[in-house]
Amino acid sequence: MPVVRADAAPAAEAAPAALSIEKTGPNFKALRDINQIMQTLPHRYPFLLVDRVVEWEKEKYAVGYKCVTINDNFFPGHFPERPIMPGVLQVEAMAQLAGLVMLDPEDTAAKGLFFFGGIEGCRFRKPVVPGDVLMMRADVTKYNKRFGIVKVAAKGYVGDELVVEAELTLAMAKQ
Rank of each mutant, 00 (worst) to 15 (best):
Phe47Lys: 12
Val54Cys: 09
Tyr61Phe: 15
Gly156Pro: 07
Gly77Lys: 05
Ala30Ser: 12
Asp160Ile: 04
Asn144Val: 10
Ser20Glu: 15
Pro76Trp: 11
His43Pro: 02
Glu165Ala: 06
Leu89Phe: 00
Thr69Cys: 03
Val88Ile: 13
Arg5Val: 01
Ala30Phe: 03
Gly156Lys: 11
Gln90Glu: 09
Asn35Tyr: 07
Gly112Phe: 04
Val128Glu: 01
Gly131Ile: 12
Ala93Leu: 06
Val150Trp: 10
Pro10Ser: 10
Leu162Ser: 07
Met85Asn: 08
Thr141Leu: 09
Leu162Tyr: 03
Thr141Cys: 05
Pro76Phe: 09
Asn71Cys: 02
Ala9Gln: 15
Cys122Gln: 13
Asp72Arg: 00
Pro2Cys: 05
Ala9Gly: 11
Ala95Glu: 01
Arg52Phe: 00
Leu31Ile: 02
Gly148Arg: 14
Ala18Leu: 12
Pro80Ala: 15
Thr108Pro: 01
Val88Met: 12
Pro42Ser: 13
Ala17Trp: 11
Arg146Asn: 14
Glu55Trp: 00
Val150Cys: 15
Ala17Val: 12
Glu55Met: 04
Asn144Tyr: 08
Ala166Gln: 01
Ser20Thr: 07
Ala8Phe: 13
Gly148Trp: 10
Arg125Ile: 02
Gly121His: 09
Val158Gln: 02
Lys60Asp: 13
Pro105Leu: 14
Lys151Tyr: 11
Ala138Met: 10
Glu161Ile: 06
Glu92Asp: 01
Gly87Phe: 11
Ala15Trp: 12
Gln175Asn: 05
Met1Asp: 07
Ala173Lys: 02
Leu31His: 01
Asn144Gln: 08
Pro16Trp: 10
Ile34Ser: 07
Glu55Tyr: 03
Ile34Gln: 06
Lys151Trp: 14
Ala14Leu: 14
Pro42Gly: 11
Val91Leu: 15
Gly159Leu: 03
